[in-house]
Write a protein that binds this DNA or RNA. Sequence first.
DNA 1: GTGGTCTAGACCACC
DNA 2: GTGGTCTAGACCACG
Lengths: 128, 128, 128, 128
Amino acid sequence: MFELDLRSRLPIYEQLIEKLKELIITEVLKPDEQLPSVRVLAQQLTINPNTIQKAYRELERQGFIYTVKGKGNFVAPIIGSIHQEKLKKLKDELIKILSEAIYLGMNKEELVELITHVDHNIGGGKEK
Amino acid sequence: MFELDLRSRLPIYEQLIEKLKELIITEVLKPDEQLPSVRVLAQQLTINPNTIQKAYRELERQGFIYTVKGKGNFVAPIIGSIHQEKLKKLKDELIKILSEAIYLGMNKEELVELITHVDHNIGGGKEK
Amino acid sequence: MFELDLRSRLPIYEQLIEKLKELIITEVLKPDEQLPSVRVLAQQLTINPNTIQKAYRELERQGFIYTVKGKGNFVAPIIGSIHQEKLKKLKDELIKILSEAIYLGMNKEELVELITHVDHNIGGGKEK
Amino acid sequence: MFELDLRSRLPIYEQLIEKLKELIITEVLKPDEQLPSVRVLAQQLTINPNTIQKAYRELERQGFIYTVKGKGNFVAPIIGSIHQEKLKKLKDELIKILSEAIYLGMNKEELVELITHVDHNIGGGKEK
DNA sequence: GTGGTCTAGACCACC
DNA sequence: GTGGTCTAGACCACG
């Protein structure tokens, strides 16, 4: 389903949250679809079930999923603001890196070209 | 000079790195200008000198400042030849983030506008 | 495990780095093997945990070990693709030292013999 | 005459010692030749005269130069053992780097080829 | 004065 | 248990 980086400085449960958020936002996981059970996912990823739990609880708290006792966890209907929040973060990160690149001598034209290139490649293959 | 958020989950030394990078990139701190000494800055920010040290060392490793023992820390001038390798890494990172941004719905026009904005703030100089 | 010279002008943490590198290179410590924890090693060597930390972080930066938070530090397996850049730097360094050695009178035969010797000690395995 | 790296982690006076040793060993500075005066050299290198003094004293202590009061500092007649000592250090350094290179996958043949290449280039242009 | 290293001891998040 | 961060205070070498 996806990969985790055990060596990363980000805690595993946060990586999980990010990955799941992405799958939900991009609607790979559709609204009201059931998520894999804690145990199953833990086994697949060979990590501790507690870690999955923690991620699921946090996702529930943030409104991305909802839990039905005795049934499992399900994707919550999407809320537009989610996009917004995620995009805001990406923008901030972009600004930082762009600043550094320009400082080191890259010019606007090169950057625009880079964007065009990336845009074209993504447009070609919609499926991630 | 600037403020730190001691409560933040980002370590203090990383906040320092970010802030100082920004001052260097926007050329508020000019090449070869001396940075405040470890002790002085520590006193100003009321944090431990070791924490400043950690930030300064990392900035040196990243090529933003250089250290002269017994003298102090100084803003590194940008030398094209040295930074080509770094630019390559930045480009890779940019591509990754750009891809994600486009995938989540940002369009080329918005990105170009963002670049223009950042470019103006750095190229223009003081405006921040 | 090994000894440190607290009086040496080389900082303790650098001695540590050298020793650990050697153990890794000679494969006394095998890939993915766990290193002693920061605290345990500190106690064994009767030095401060922070000093061990410093050494471990540098070894991680150099790609010799990797860290899993909450788990420990482990010997990094060698992955060709990642290390090509590092090999290039090593080569440059080698050329510099070789030039100096030849300039000061060492001849090609002596150098080849040296290589053979080193190659045998590492390739052969345990012999040190 | 030569350059110093103020940013280096090696103290300036040690860099001076190394450079002068090299000039003496390679007989660019001939036995009994007069060295530049402390003041002149300090001015040329734009560093503190005390630093030059320190280097000259250490070189005298090590037997590389001798001082005649009121006259100046002079190159001491060479002693063979100097070469030996220097070569020993180089060899140690070589062993370390070779070990690392081999660990990262370079094989003996590549290294021998590298030596041949360096050897050939040096042989062609004797003057450094 | 400057940075570099080190200790002792503390608190945190993660697993 | 693990590593990561931080403080307070010390000593050193360097210029």
